[in-house]
Design a protein around this nucleic acid. Sequence first.
RNA 1: GCAGGUAUGGCGGAACUGGCAGACGCGCUAGACUUAGGAUCUAGUGGAGCAAUCCAUGCAGGUUCAAUUCCUGUUACCUGCACCA
Length: 789
Amino acid sequence: MENITKIEKKWRNKWEEENIYKFEFDDKKEKLYCLEMFSYPSGANLHMGHWWNYGVTDTWARLKRMQGYNVFHPMGFDAFGLPAENYAIKTGIHPKDSTNQNIKTMKKQLKNIGATYDWDYEINTSSPEYYKWTQWMFLKLYENNLAYKKEAPVNWCSSCNTVLANEQVINGECDRCQTTIERKEMSQWFFKITDYAEELLTSLDKLDWPDATKVLQRNWIGKSEGAFVNFKVDDYSFKVFTTRSDTLFGVTYCVLSPEHELALKITKPEYIEAVKKYQKEASIQSEIERTSTLKEKTGVFTGAYAINPVNNKKVPIYIADYVLSTYGTGAVMAVPAHDERDYEFAKKYNLDIIPVIESDTLPFMEDGKHINSEFLNGLNNIDAINKMNNYLKDNNLGEKTTNYRLRDWLVSRQRYWGSPIPIIYCETCGIVPVPEKDLPVVLPYDVEFTPDGESPLAKSDEFVNCKCPLCNKDAKREVDTLDTFVCSSWYFLRFLDANNNNEPFNKERINKIMPVDKYVGGIEHACMHLLYARFFTKALRDMGYLNFDEPFKSLVHQGIILGPDGEKMSKSRGNTVTPDPIVEKYGSDILRNYLMFGFNYIDGGPWTDDGITSINRFYKRVERLIDKHSQDKEIEKLEKVLHKTIKSVLEDLEEFQFNTSIARIMEYTNALSKYEEIPKYYLEQLLLLLAPFAPHITEELWSRLGNDFSIHNMNYPTYDASKVIENTFEIGVQVNGKLRASVNITDNISDEEIKEEVLKHENIIKYTKDKEIIKFIIVPKKIVSIVVK
RNA sequence: GCAGGUAUGGCGGAACUGGCAGACGCGCUAGACUUAGGAUCUAGUGGAGCAAUCCAUGCAGGUUCAAUUCCUGUUACCUGCACCA
């Protein structure tokens, strides 16, 4: 198409003037909330990934619009976060200034996609109007005992002199300077996501999400059934968590993690020094060193002995770093005969190994008959566990329990560019939440944010010093900011009421439009954003602010568009492909269509330029066909093709199979091009079919056919089932599993007639004569299979 | 180590619930129209073979009248988790 850029611009302006993508709440049509993970406003232009996620999903949203849904399709910016802050440290440009500038550019670029966003619902998480309500969320969680402060180990980079978020730790190293991350104890705020572990796990089943994603979340939550067992040591006692309480008679020692609160208390005086030394060594080890499975196990004896509650045997207690303080109780009972790790440790330190399950090998982890186990002898694994758990409970020695791998969510960040945590520390009143009426706690502009290990906000006296809301004495504000994942844990709710100044969102609105019907974004968020957002939704539900259980009913992960070399696109690799030149040359519709046609949306794949010309050629062909339009009349042959096409396109689009939908429309186009003159109706149907795929081009051609603005307000084609039915079929005939012939069969003939027809076929006669027909299988409309001997 | 995923022509990729493997397109070959074509149109295009036919969905088996699809084993790559007691 000539002047494609101009044409696209013309229609975008028209759409904006006419406000055709306006979303109205009171619409009588059925609602549909289509959402892509909102964007981080980076300085550069849109990259291929943006077009891939936003352009392609918009096609689906457009289909739904044309199918008569009241589609809510918003866009906004996840604007807080480290990149802006790091950029500021490098360039001196304030994060607020660069972010706002980036949002401006990005919004302009996003508009070039020609998507159906209603920008009246735009949000920016770094604006006080937004983070006021992020802070409100924090207060509500705090009120409901779902936010608490405690001492915790965090990721510390000694070179940047700051704490890093988990997602900034790549293979145990700082993603900025590759320094090995250390652990450091700091007082931090947490959200009690573990309260929801069970529901987060079980309600996954109901969701229309990719199985792979559910598996990731399930593993992350890591439920395991087991038991607590109490071990006494002198005047103290500690609990261990075990999934194998059936092996209790095989316990030959116990291990506490170096961080265990009893570690020093139970240690005998002559061992104190060694234990302290070991603790220190463990604490300065990096997380990778500490948790490496390759590392030889180490430990130190405490001189103390614990009493095995089932047989009152004394077993030595060790401190060893192969036991993690963050899982279970931070203490384990060791059964070297039936656990590889315990076995390795026992061998090294010459500890007893007592088999309690019959086997030829050591260590043996399979099921088997119990031995050396008094009342468990002869039982298999499951029965033994049940019997033991009952015994523990009856004798008050322990109890059955469920343990989760999931940890509470650490939300404190010692960084500047984030939402301040609305908490005040008063010497008299302690921790005091900022009263709701005082929100937002505004992030001050003039702050020294070069990282030196101290939270940047701590350096702003103006920010820190305040009055206690309860006693009005001098007090100090919390100086950490919130993890940006907090901002994105509820943005899909705010979108619906983006300009509400009185509350985070209106309850009726939320309940009317939520949940999100189709959520599209990368799988990398499986165990972070997607989990956090589910937690927020459930917490808000239990507080009475909304009445649904899950935020995202149906989820799609787009694959990744790789560089032409098959590697992930990156500046350092120099394999990035930028959309801009393609958009300039061919227009945004062509880029969008190439992305849809050239790849499977779920898989992605390496970029190639070749496909661009092919899709461009296709639309040029469509344009030429439009110019061949003639008076309307029905062509029976085309009717059939058209209705079959509509059927397939609708089915494929439902599954995000854009590539095959376009292939089907190409087939329809091929059928049309057989005609010198094409009735206008069939061309209009073609344009309507293509409208969600190529909004600009179809709008232009629609008007060229003499139709009124806008094609996007038309209904999407529907098919007539009676026209899709075939009444003749060409079906294959197999003899002994090999294809030997192909026959034409009409719809309504009997199996006997089919048999007769098939056996008349020359080639079939050849393969069946002088042979006995053992089986004659007819699969209606598909195949005939003959077995001969 | 554990869990999940992927593997189909020269290339991107199709194939619903087991039913004619390779839709659609790129590329390539030949031809047409052209001053020309990197435009457009027509025909062909998985491999071998003159043909009948045979061989082909990572590899090796199995189930079945029939397997890209189901089962067992195996290889390569990708992703997540990783001393989880």
